[in-house]
Every structure is written in C-alpha cells, then in structure tokens.
Design a protein around this nucleic acid. Sequence first.
DNA 1: TTTATTTACTTAACCGATTAAGTAAAGTAC
DNA 2: GTACTTTACTTAATCGGTTAAGTAAATAAA
Lengths: 337, 337
Amino acid sequence: MENVTLRMLAEKLQLSTATISKALNNSHEISKETKQRVLALATELNYVPNPYASSLRKKSSSTIAVVIPEVADSYFAEAINGIETIAQEKGYHVLIYLTHENFGKEQAILRDFQSGRVDGILISVTTETAAAKHDLEQLAKEIPLVFFDRVCEEVAAAKITTDDVESGYKATEHLIANGCRNIALLSVSKNLSISNKRMEGFQQALAAHQLPFSESAVTYCSNDAAANHALIKNVIQLHQYDGIVATTEKLSTAIYLVCEELQLHIPNDIKVIGFSNLSTARFLNPSLTTITQPAFDMGKAAATLLFKALKSSGFNLQEENLVIPSTLMVRNSTVGK
Amino acid sequence: MENVTLRMLAEKLQLSTATISKALNNSHEISKETKQRVLALATELNYVPNPYASSLRKKSSSTIAVVIPEVADSYFAEAINGIETIAQEKGYHVLIYLTHENFGKEQAILRDFQSGRVDGILISVTTETAAAKHDLEQLAKEIPLVFFDRVCEEVAAAKITTDDVESGYKATEHLIANGCRNIALLSVSKNLSISNKRMEGFQQALAAHQLPFSESAVTYCSNDAAANHALIKNVIQLHQYDGIVATTEKLSTAIYLVCEELQLHIPNDIKVIGFSNLSTARFLNPSLTTITQPAFDMGKAAATLLFKALKSSGFNLQEENLVIPSTLMVRNSTVGK
DNA sequence: TTTATTTACTTAACCGATTAAGTAAAGTAC
DNA sequence: GTACTTTACTTAATCGGTTAAGTAAATAAA
C-alpha cells in the first residue's frame, strides 16, 4: 500500500492540494462541509502528513534537541523525564544526543544544528566545553538555547541551574556541624561552572567556620571509574580526612567502595555527603546524606522556558536565569560518631 | 546571515546545484578538482545540508525512534546509553518517546511513525500493549522494528530479550536454596510477556522443589508508587512469606521500605531478590541480591540489529530473536538467617 | 442596481536537497 | 576518420507539504 499523501486525498475529493492542506489545518478559508469531508477521508485512509515536507517548507520541525553528557547518572535520567513530559504536551519531538563527556562529539553535534534540524536546544555541557564558548554563543543567537545544570556562564543564553554555591556551602557546613574539621572535596572539572560553584560554597563554609582551606583538599576526578577509584583511595589514605563532599553521584558510591576496602567506617571514621539524585540513597549502608537536585523540575523548567521562546518570538531567552534550590537530605552517612 | 544552501554554493562557483550535490556526495561523475573546489567553499561558508530536504527526497531520515515506558528505571537509562552509542557511530539520530505506561500515548506515538519520520523503531512496550498487537504487526511490516526487553510475543518482529524464564527460575531457586519455603512474587502486569515469563520460571522452580504454588503468592503491582506500597505492605502482613522475588527495580526498594516499617529484618525475617540494574545494589542495607539484566548490551544489540536491517535491505528482521542472559548477583538480602 | 466585500476555493511558486535523463567535449577503438 | 565510450557536467523533475496571489460566485453595502 502506497503512502497516503495530500495529493491522493485531493484527487479523490476533486479538490486542490491547497484546499486539503488548509482544511486539515483548520483554515478559515475552508467551509465546514469541505473540512468534514476532508477529515473523514483522511481518517478513513489513515493519512499522516509527512513531517519532513512540512518542516522543509515551514522551516521549523517541532523538534528539540537534548544534549547531555550521558544518561547513566540518575540526574539526567530524571531530567529527560521532565523534558519529554513537557515536549509531549506541546506536541514536540525530542532528539537525544550523548556527548559521553567528549568535547569533539559535542562540537559535531552542535554543528549539525546549524542545519535547522531542531527548533530549540537544551544542553548540559561537557567538562571540556570551556573552549567552545564562542561556538555556543553563536549558536544561541541562531537557535533558542537553554542551558540546564551544567551551564556555560560566559555565554548569553537562558540558564536553569540549582543553587550550587549554597548547596556546596550547606553540604560543607553540615559536615562541620557534625564535627568534621578536615574535609575533602571531590570535584570533576576546573572548567565546569557547576563544579567551581560547589567548590566556592565549600571554601566559604570553611572560611565561615575558621577552618583552613588547602588546595590539596580538592581532588579532580575524571570520567574513568577505575582511575577515580585509585585516586580517591589514594587521597583518603594519604590525608586523615574526617569528612568528604562528593560533588557527583558516582563519586559518592565510589567513596563507599573505597571505605569498604580501607575498612573505614562511615560515619564514625569519615562522614560522607554526596550530590545525588539516587532514589536508593536512603537504603544505602549507611544511608547517604545527599544534596538532592530537583532534576525532574529542572528538566521541566528548561523545556517550559524553551517552548515559551519557541511560541512567542518576542521572548528574550538570553535574560532568563532560573535557579531551583537543591535540598539537603540528612541521613546516616554524616551523623553519629 | 542567511542559511547556506546548495544553490548559494552553486552560484558562487558557477555550477549547477546537481554538481554541488554530487560533489559533496563524492559522486564519481564529478572531477577531483571540482570536488575540491566545492568542498573548500562548503567548509569556508560552513555549509550544513538541510536534513529535511534530503529526507523528503530520499525518503529516509537517518533517524530512529526509541519508545520506552520511562527512563526512571536504571534499566532504560542504560539501554538508551547503549542505543545512542551505536546510533552515533552509524551517523543516526535518536528520537526518544516515553509512553509513561500509557497505552493511548503509545498508540499516538506509533501512529505518527506512519509518516516516515523514522527509518526504524526500537520499542519496549507498555504494560497494556496487548491490545495493540495488530497495529504493531502492521507497523513492523512497514518499518524495521526491534522489540527489546518488553516484547510483544505474538508480533512477528525482531526481539532482544534476556532469559526471563531462566532468571525467574534462578531467582526463586536461589531463595529456596537459602531456606525459603513460602515465597511471594511481585509482578507488574498479566499482559507483559516479560512478567509472565518470570512468573513461569518462578512456578517451575517451586514445582521442581515440591513447593506448592498458589495464585495468592503473586501480587500485581501498578505504576503508582503509593498504591504499590500499600499493596506490598498488605501482602507481607497478611501472609508469612519468608522470601520475595521482585520482578522490577522499583518494587525491590519498595520492599525495603515496607520491611523497615514493619520492622522485618532482611534477610533474617524475609529474604529479598530483585530484578534490578541498580549500580548501588551492593551498597544497600542489606546489599541487594539481584538478577541483573545486561541493559547496555541489550540496547547495543537492539540498535545493532536494527542498523543491520537498515543497511542491507535483504535482511529479514522478523526472524531475529536474540536472548542475552541475565546474571544472578548474590548479596546479603538473601543469605544468612 | 451597482459596487464592495466576503467566502471558498484554485493556481503556482516554494522549501532545499536528490536524481533520472540529457548533452557537449574529450578520449578511445578500429 | 568515423563510431563508440567515457567524462564532467547541466536541465528539469521530484519528494510532499505550505502559502502568497489570484478568481469566481455569493453576499452585503451603497
């Protein structure tokens, strides 16, 4: 069976394709009766318009792109949920692209967007993206773009973040309040504003409580689990930390593993707090105190903002900057002695 | 700045658009010198072809669709990773659609695929999809389609699954081997082959060990966490189960919660094994014995199979049926007394 | 009654690529 | 030297919608 096209409907009804198109788009130029006849035949023949024909002509695709480092992290899984929920509501399609923390891949993906493949972009950048500031700046001028979570500070575009400085502060202060005096921070990248902000909060909290800050307290981890494991093990063995702030989900559990190996008891020997969206945090052994980001809501907010820009052309996306606070969930990995 | 098109390149080089198109597609009809000139100008002007124009003409989009219930489950998160990795390798784009376990949404999404929006489909069906057998059958005839994980048994299409019967058997037998005699099964849907198979394995294992099977041992949970919680609590209170098999990830942690509330000790009072891909299973309290599905590999396999079909038209996808075994990971939630 | 406006269409151009078919010039065969 | 290929292009049709511009008939306004 051939694909049903406008032309076929037009021929069967002895009308022009223009009439059919307008009828299906509920144009006021078409009479009620004709609309009904067209609609009836369309449903009967199960007509589904070719999206590429209309995208080509209309120069818009009802498609948005979500560019993220990976979905392994539960943060991004939830964010996708939020994004897709809104997109489906608005009748948009969602293309997903994983950069695998690879800057080159990200570049290639973004370059493709010059083609008009998508009407808008939601992006959480790579750890190495600093270098692409200019490209992103340019892209944001051409296509509505919203950063979420991992933003590029320097680029003028909409941003949805959580209160990273405050969260870093809260996490650190919480450890201090629970008796820690020698606290380490596990970070991921010097190029990531999100990392730097969390570290900023970390430093501020130390300062506020007259605790010294030394560069050696900060460990930069990578995307390589094995390497991170070795790194963390080394750091913990070398210094006598009594508290650790893990700025990503995966690093939190990496710490658990290392402590198990080193026979360090959490929280007695060392207290652990992690930035994490794990729904299982409360079931861990010991249950993990977390800074939980509003992943789903951030995804929803990012998508909502993007669609606002897509629907109303006058909307200035650049100015938007929404901060949704994270929550400190106190559990057993930081309390007790 | 206007978008760069073939026509613009053609005018600048005093050539026809046909020549430009062929040059960029490395056609043998075009001389080396011309190709170089074209390529040089294309890169200079940062030409990116309009995908919709070429999709329209070629009747193929280099795009595949992934249709899944949700990404919240870590199984699907990993599967997406696997799929996207392969897709990117092959130069394909990935559209993602969440059905939110809603059959109507799934129907609408699948209907849209009649339009030629995607060249191929990877799908893990809703719990209610049984009704759509016919539609799926039809769709599979028109567009290469691969089921993964949650397949529709009756539909003739490629399927990537894990060994669900065996896994159900293994899980149950493991509980029996550890002393359980009164075992419950938490399932999700009577319509889902994956559920039924796991239950089949459950029954087989009971029978093999001369344990009685009663319908009341099986509880069908829904997608509603609160309802599930009440249901599970009720079931556990009512019967004196000494072991539970949770056929999904979320149900596993739901059990932990219920046991906490009922002050039941895992594994002493009740042993728990769950179908789960949680990377944190080993850190739970107690660490969770799991049947771990090869999510990433299943995603990769599904995508690989799909692309095989897309590249070589002679390939008969219907016949393909790949089973990748799951692994039993014994941990503390099932051992000890 | 004549003119203006509205209604309900049609015609044809267009979006930007791909490709079948055609062609002029150069190269090769005999 | 004529016929046949090959090379390197061009022309024009095409994919399937959308939309600006045009038109004939019906209706409203004067």
